[in-house]
């Protein structure tokens, strides 16, 4: 069993037009679709005027996904930190762990590893779902999601045995999107921490 590949096998996508399975063939178009969705969300986040009451209603439906995303991403990071170690050897370490998990399927490490794979699938699923929602009404969340996507694509470019080059390029595109978003949201008006003492200001950027 190739654990690195089979992690994409049991998916249940939000988008009802999609297959029950996502494999090498459909992952490309699926990821491209998500990327372009986020790109449009970024444009809308930058160009829209202000939050209206309708947006707040829409936010309500996004909120439930956000909480799950936060928890899953945290667990994902913790696992990588705890079991995988330095990123330079990411692929090798994951392969070692996969082998260990196959040899001792009931060990705690194997269980954690299975949970990690499961989390990763769900994480991608959530990111696809969020791309289809009106996430531009939540600029901070949108930024965080783009950051998460950049990191995941980076990891996938090392872990995904099928289409590493695709994920590598996708990572660059997300990084570009993040840069644009930072720059453009900055010009739109950055949210600043409110100061209690308005007289004493510290100019950190000089």
């Amino acid at each position: 069993m190739n654990l690195l590949i089979s992690n994409d096998n049991k998916l249940n996508y939000y988008d009802e037009n999609l297959d029950q399975t996502e494999n090498k063939i459909t992952v490309l178009s699926r990821q491209l679709k998500t990327y372009l969705n986020y790109r449009e969300s970024t444009i809308l986040a930058i160009c829209r005027e202000s939050e209206n009451s309708l947006d707040i209603l829409k936010n309500h439906s996004i909120q439930k996904w956000e909480t799950e995303l936060n928890i899953l991403y945290l667990e994902y990071c913790i696992f990588l930190e705890k079991y995988i170690g330095p990123k330079e050897n990411l692929k090798m370490n994951v392969l070692m762990l996969a082998k260990k998990a196959l040899s001792f399927p009931n060990s705690p490490e194997a269980r954690s590893f299975k949970k990690f794979l499961k989390n990763k699938i769900r994480l991608w699923e959530l990111l696809h779902i969020l791309s289809a929602l009106e996430i531009h009404t939540r600029p901070q969340l949108l930024k965080r999601v783009i950051q998460i996507l950049t990191k995941l694509c980076n990891d996938e470019s090392k872990l995904n045995a099928n289409v590493p080059d695709f994920f590598q390029q996708l990572k660059l595109n997300y990084q570009q999107l993040e840069r644009e978003y930072d720059q453009l949201l900055l010009t739109k008006g950055k949210v600043q921490i409110k100061s209690k003492n308005t007289n004493k200001k510290v100019m950190v950027r000089e």
């Binding site: 190739n2 037009n17 063939i25 459909t26 491209l32 372009l36």
Partner: peptide, 30 residues
Amino acid sequence: GAKIVPGYLDSLSRAYKNSLNKRQKKSIEN
């Protein structure tokens, strides 16, 4: 219209996948 590109490619990919048999799918996967 960039956003409509993956929609079409997606349906094409699914049709492509469905036309393959198990072995052929496996050969793509591994």
